Computed example of a mutant assay.
Amino acid sequence: MQHTDIRQIATELVQLLGPTDWAIGGSFLLQCYGIEPQARDLDLVCTLQRFEEFKTLLSQYAQVVPVSLHPIYRSKGFARFRKNGLELELMAGIQVLKDDGLQAFEFLPEKTSWQQDLPLMQLADWLELYQLFERPKRVKQLQYYLNSNPEVIRSQI
């Protein structure tokens, strides 16, 4: 999957889903900041209120991929799609099962940062999500970037 293909699909999603209540995260977000050389997929986070609507729109745009229950991820809304070989994941009401119960992440659309005509999530939010998802390599990678580029955090507050 080429960089332009992912960016093209992301741009098409802005047209499909509209400009509010969702944002891009994951490896493509990291790619947009130059942290990750190549995104493998496109992670979309949306509000729980719009999840079913966005899921329907995406199912008309891309092929639905069946999802099996994950041992610790317990998001209230989760769907996977494939478009031109690229995997898209739509999630809402993100929750992860921990030893002490469910831990939730609240997506706040007003924190979305528009860059290059794409709605991007805050890097600090993905740091929190990677910690929640127990992805130590990503946590370390993002902490290093944010510590080396403190102006990024200031610009996102």
Rank of each mutant, 00 (worst) to 15 (best):
F107G: 09
Q122W: 04
A92Q: 08
Y144Q: 12
L102W: 09
Q143F: 07
S148H: 09
L120V: 06
G101E: 10
G101M: 11
R135L: 12
L118A: 02
W114T: 06
Q115N: 04
E110I: 05
I153L: 11
Q115G: 00
L90E: 12
L123A: 07
L120P: 01
W114G: 01
R138M: 15
K140R: 14
Q95F: 09
G93N: 04
M91Q: 10
P150N: 13
L108A: 14
Q143L: 12
Y144V: 10
Q141H: 00
T112P: 04
D125T: 01
E134W: 09
R154E: 10
Y144D: 13
V152D: 10
V96K: 08
Y130H: 07
Q103R: 15
E106C: 03
Q131A: 08
P119D: 01
L102I: 13
L108H: 14
L132F: 08
D117P: 01
M91I: 07
Q131H: 08
R135V: 05
G101I: 03
Q141R: 11
Q95Y: 13
K111G: 06
Y144S: 02
R138H: 14
S148P: 05
D99K: 15
Y145G: 02
D125Q: 01
I153R: 12
L132N: 05
Q122Y: 04
V96F: 12
L129P: 05
Y144E: 06
L142F: 04
F105E: 02
V139T: 10
S113R: 14
Q141K: 13
S155H: 06
E106W: 13
F133M: 10
I153T: 11
L132P: 06
P119K: 04
K137I: 14
Y144L: 07
L102F: 14
P109M: 11
K140H: 03
K137N: 11
G101Y: 05
I94C: 10
N147G: 02
